[in-house]
């Protein structure tokens, strides 16, 4: 990191601010467009007449002008206020905070799995273009993007839970018959390991395999495709020919010289894939009844409870903007030329 100019880091962070502001405004506009009048929704009790609804509208700030409402909304956001869920009765921020670790655990596990499989596969395929492995990798890349996660998930459940019987019950995060560990991070794998609760740790890991595998399959195709393409591109470069002529070993050329130079497009794709996964989370969480923020937003959406949906969209968009920032900084660290532009 030390080699990237401080100016680049600052500029890149400042560039993220207008996007973040746009995200807030767009989310606000989306919620203002929502069909149901929240006051009428709250006031569905029999004792509520037109005057009470009007009073409630005033209390919720719905009688003000749109810019005033936006200002109030932004002030609330800065104070960490995301409104209150009608379904759970809790502040949305608290609900999201309680459920975010489950989503992150799933996404991080799936992403790690996908990268661990995709990068070696892509490198090996590029090292031997036209080989059987290369054709296999190209098939994975082409078929993978056509597999929606909600179909892969169901197929995996059928294969590994119903037929083979290897996987545990696909609708829970931990074994209800084993003692649970005190929440520290909210990541059940880490919490049970910290607690030394190894029986539950195994149960938790076992229950993570199918949903994470489903998401990893979804992420595999673009990663493997980009790794292969970037490596193929780099392997034709002059410095690789020079390295070969100098008699460096094949492994050293591939892993040290070529991979390092192919890293920028791969990291960029990885950032994009991670953001796709934040969206696909919703589908995977629905299939596996995973108690994350995606299924929370879905339940709220079905119940016309819009504050949680809004909070969810904002949270995910904010994570996404931060991720993109991280990816750009990583790229600058991997390739000093990026930071100089």
């Amino acid at each position: 990191m030390g080699r990237i100019g401080a100016r680049y880091v600052v500029n890149r962070m400042l560039a993220a601010l207008p996007v973040l502001a746009g995200v807030v405004v767009l989310t606000f506009v989306l919620v203002r467009l929502l069909p149901a009048d929240p006051a009428a929704f709250f006031a569905s009790g029999p004792a509520m007449g037109p005057e009470e609804i009007e009073a409630l509208r005033r209390q919720l700030g719905l009688d003000r002008t749109i810019p005033e409402q936006l200002a109030i909304y932004v002030r609330g956001l800065l104070a960490g206020e995301l409104g209150r869920s009608l379904v759970t009765g809790q502040p949305v921020a608290a609900d999201l905070a309680a459920r975010l670790p489950a989503s992150l655990e799933l996404t991080v596990a799936a992403f790690a799995l996908a990268v661990a499989v995709a990068v070696p596969l892509g490198v090996l395929a590029a090292a031997r273009p036209g080989s059987l492995l290369d054709h296999l990798v190209r098939l994975i890349a082409a078929a993978g993007v056509a597999m929606p996660p909600f179909v892969t998930g169901l197929v995996l459940i059928h294969l590994f839970y119903v037929l083979a019987g290897w996987a545990p019950d696909p609708t829970s995060r931990s074994d209800p018959y084993l003692p649970s560990s005190p929440p520290v991070t909210g990541f059940l794998t880490i919490d049970t390991a910290l607690d030394g609760n190894w029986g539950q740790f195994r149960a938790v890991c076992g229950r993570l395999v199918l949903p994470a595998g489903t998401m990893a399959l979804f992420a595999l195709a673009p990663l493997v495709r980009m790794t292969r393409a970037a490596m193929l591109d780099v392997l034709t470069a002059d410095f690789v020919r020079t390295a070969r002529a100098l008699g460096l070993s094949r492994a050293r050329i591939l892993l040290v010289y070529a991979l390092r130079n192919a890293l920028v497009p791969v990291v960029t794709t990885a950032g994009m894939v991670l953001s796709y996964m934040l969206g696909a989370n919703v589908l995977v969480e629905k299939v596996f009844a995973w108690p994350g923020i995606g299924s929370y937003a879905l339940d709220a959406l079905v119940a016309s409870d819009y504050a949680p949906v809004q909070g969810f969209v904002l949270t995910v968009a904010a994570i996404f903007v931060a991720l993109n920032l991280g990816v750009d900084l990583l790229c600058a660290a991997a390739d000093p030329r990026v930071g100089l532009e």
Binding site: G22, P35, Y276, L301, V309, A317
Partner: peptide, 24 residues
């Protein structure tokens, strides 16, 4: 360009969900 940046700042499936919820 800015507007496109903002649209791209949302994970696309999540944005689609929010849009359908907003539009009906």
């Amino acid at each position: 360009g800015r507007l496109v940046d903002v649209l791209m700042a949302f994970p696309l499936f999540v944005l689609a969900m929010a849009l359908v919820a907003a539009l009906g």
